[in-house]
Nucleic acid binder design. Sequence first.
RNA 1: GCCGGAGUGGCGGAAUUGGCAGACGCGCGGGAUUCAAAAUCCCGUUCUGGCAACAGAGUGAGGGUUCGAGUCCCUCCUCCGGCACCA
Length: 1042
Amino acid sequence: MTEVTQRIKLGRYDFTSIESRWQQYWDQHRTFRMENPSEADACADKPKYYILDMFPYPSGSGLHVGHPLGYCATDIIARYKRMCGYNVLHPMGFDSFGLPAEQYAIQTNVHPAVTTKKNIDTYRRQMKMFGFSYDWHREIATSDARFYKFTQWCFIQMAQSWYDDQATWTAPDGYTIKGRARPIAELEAALKSGQWGVDESLNLVRHADDEQFCVWGDLSEPQQREAIDRHRLAFIDEIPVNWCPALGTVLANEEVDSEGLSDRGSHPVYRRPLRQWMLRITKYSERLIDDLAELDWPEPIKLMQRNWVGRSTGAEVVFPLANMWNLKDGQWSCKDSATTIPASLNYDNFPHAIRVYTTRPDTLYGATYMVLAPEHAMVEQITTRAQKQQVDNYIKEASHRSDLDRTADMKEKTGVFTGGYAINPVTGRPIPIWIADYVLMGYGTGAIMAVPGGDSRDFEFACTFDLPIVPVVTPTSEWIQQRLTAMTARIDQRALDGFDDLAKEYPQLGEEIAKCRQRSTGLGEKTLSVLRDDVGMTKLLHHYICHPQAWGEAFTGEGVAVNSPGDMDVDGVDNPCVLDDMPTAEAKSAIIEWLEARGLGRGAVNYKLRDWVFSRQKYWGEPIPVLHGEDGEVVAIDVDELPLELPEMEDFKPTPVAGSDEQVPTPPLGRAKDWAKVERNGKTYRRDLNTMPQWAGSCWYYLRFIDPDNETRICDTDAERYWMPVDLYVGGAEHAVLHLLYARFWHKVLYDLGYVSTREPFKRLFNQGMIQSFAYRDARGLVVGPDQVDALAGDQFVMKETGEKVERIVAKMSKGLKNVVNPDEIISQYGADTFRLYEMYMGPLDAAKPWSTRDVPGLHKLCQRIWRLVVDENTDELSPALCEDAPSPDALRALHKTIKRVQADVESLKLNTAIAAIFDFVNILTPLEKRSRAVIEPFVLVLAPFAPHLAEELWHRLGHDSTLAYEPWPSYDEVLTQDETVEIVVQICGKVKSRMMVPANLEDEALKDAAMADDRVARAIEGKTIRKVIVVKGRLVNIVAT
RNA sequence: GCCGGAGUGGCGGAAUUGGCAGACGCGCGGGAUUCAAAAUCCCGUUCUGGCAACAGAGUGAGGGUUCGAGUCCCUCCUCCGGCACCA
């Protein structure tokens, strides 16, 4: 080996030793330990910044390169904020309860606690390898009893509270809120004292003079218990779930295939109601929507949450059953003498009737049939003997289909006539009642009034089953225009038929239609244009109203009411509600008023959001801390008894139930007989055998990070007040709705009960994109992994074995495709700093983008070039180019521009362009013969958040004794970021014709004159008239000349 | 199906939010250095035509608004995320 190569080795960028040295330094010096304000070392007067990652589920395969994307970003922000003088809370933990660990345990018979611990150790080791500045003293795991003690505590809070939607209260910050979770004891007291009571159906009645008021003391003990229990935020209800008897368990939707069979073992799965713990998230619908306004979240995510909660306004309407009721002169009389009819009928008490919710009460006259969900409680009562067999078959079939499946499959609507009829309350006419699976039990009342003339799903259904279609809203002419275009495009022969009667009045159209029939083509755009005048439009509108089927689609927008009741007969209805010629909004309020006056309905607000099914029949989760008495009593265990630990078990399998879909599952905890049986005050109780869903721990973990060792409270009050809310929360967009909505809900409950000080947990949210990976597709469309493919020059790819050409595509990383990239390999080859820089440089943080190992060396080169800016590779000493002289104006300008760009980009999380700015700086500095310390030192600080190991090492070599983690972020001088001259583009009619350098501050007039004086411009406008000159200062001059 | 998002060179992407399309990186081509290679440094690189000056085209497709559109509006196509028991 020659002398030269040895010397090169001496001072090269040795990332391995640099990175391990600085990671050790940070550990030993507790560099990133953050104390709470009450603790000795804390500086409580500094501003705080709480930056949080969505904590990972520690899976068996370890971190893949997708995980650290968000962690790198938050680490950069955390380090940047520390340098800006903030107290930074930047913790990490593990969401360690969950299904995969349990399934792995069932397969291998290794206890999930064992595999979970192993996986967490791997994750922690990998995360430390990246040099993240987490405060590891605050690490938590949701499966740790010290943690889930308080998950259970939260559950008990919800079981012991009720939602008072009448409570209007002022929060400590002066904000007025309607509705509040209150201790259940307050409700109990109000009922016991007689201040409040209940009605016959045990609904709360707040005024003693209400005719429905029942005296509390007159109720039986179970009735009293029921009246209180039904108000709890955590309650038990019967809810349809995917019950698989052969596996003895309830399956997740994703574990059931489209045929209604289980993924594991292909056993039949039934949709069947089961008693489940529920959380009353629906009570918070309004607040979950309203409070989004104050959050700095991506607008699309807010929109998704709003849509998920799905607030709509409309009306609830009663449709009396035709076989039970007569309607004459506006008077309803019941055919069944045994039925007691309330003195004043209203939506709630109308007997023998179907209740529906509609967002379009204005289309009530167009309701020509009704549809019930197959699970609707009234199906049995309504179905006639003749239809029973068909109806039963259909219900059975539907029970195999998931909600998604039922609404997703739009190819063909299915349904069955029940034989029953209801009376449309405005027309007085009987309309048939069907059942169909496109109506879901979970939304509204599980029944709809079908308006095929105004709803696309009802329209398709009516077309399929030949039910009457009555348009009740006149379409807009835009819609007619659009339909005409769409229909010609589709060459719809049925649409042609519908135009025959129009053709009588437009001979030209008639000829054209005949030609189209001959040629089997659609109507030509030109021909249709004869209809697009005012007369034609009127004819077309009329035509749609008479022949909606011909148009292939219903008009579902807002417009002017028609056929309501105008030209319709109204049977038996006294004083029909005339909506004709009213715009939709007006028609809505008119019909609601009419319905309310007659006790047939009322205005209503509805939400798509459903209450949260909270129990799981699984082992690896938080046990639900509740005891069941023999008499049906349900009591939460005492808070002092928490945590209620999971019993040690050897077999976590559920108990299969042979050949029956009737039995109730026995969750794995049912096998822990000793654990499940409990004595309290001489009574025997059984523990609840369910566990909580994985969401539970993630609903509040951000609070635990604040005070992870607190044994008496979820966290210390003062610390909570100091750190909350989370200033920046970063995680995958796949959590856009569920996790974030559930966590917001828990937070609001805790807020109402006074345990937290902010209305919302996460002030700013950022969703990082997914890292994908390359895969390849062969000629048959089969996707193969990179391990089977060779790359040729010029981005050609062939199969290793056959040489067959394949096309490169972007796919999700998956074990099956063998395109998962392991960060350990990348780090050992290039180092953590290179890895961090590469991931941040790949593209915008929120975009999905493919991992390309080929591009990694580019960032490694950047690290080496930065290294050489400071260190002489031959001597391992400081570079001789480094000097103490004042910097050159160019270098100084480059530095100040870089600080400004990086700072702005970091604050807006545009880390890819921040690194581009660093590249630019290095490109400018590299060729300089002298590099002033006054430029290099601030640059090293700018680099520090991105490549912390490299920056620390350079900082150290530049003569500093301690870490740069708390050095102040360098400031820039705005003047030094501006160029003195700028290039201006001169356009003629929007085309660039010339460029010129001018002083940056040149005024508009002078710019214009300069442009006119330009040779090429003068030539281009010669002989033309100048119509207009547009001057954009500092950018361009556009001359419009003809 | 419903809700949300995205389509820009050979590749990843940039574009001050209506003002020079392609910053920066990868790859590729050329040069310097070297006995040679690696590494490093410099130059070039959207496409088409042309030796060149230059001309024309160009941001998924089609249409529109505007002096000016990757950016705004309408229609369509493709891909990605979520759809409540994966997390």
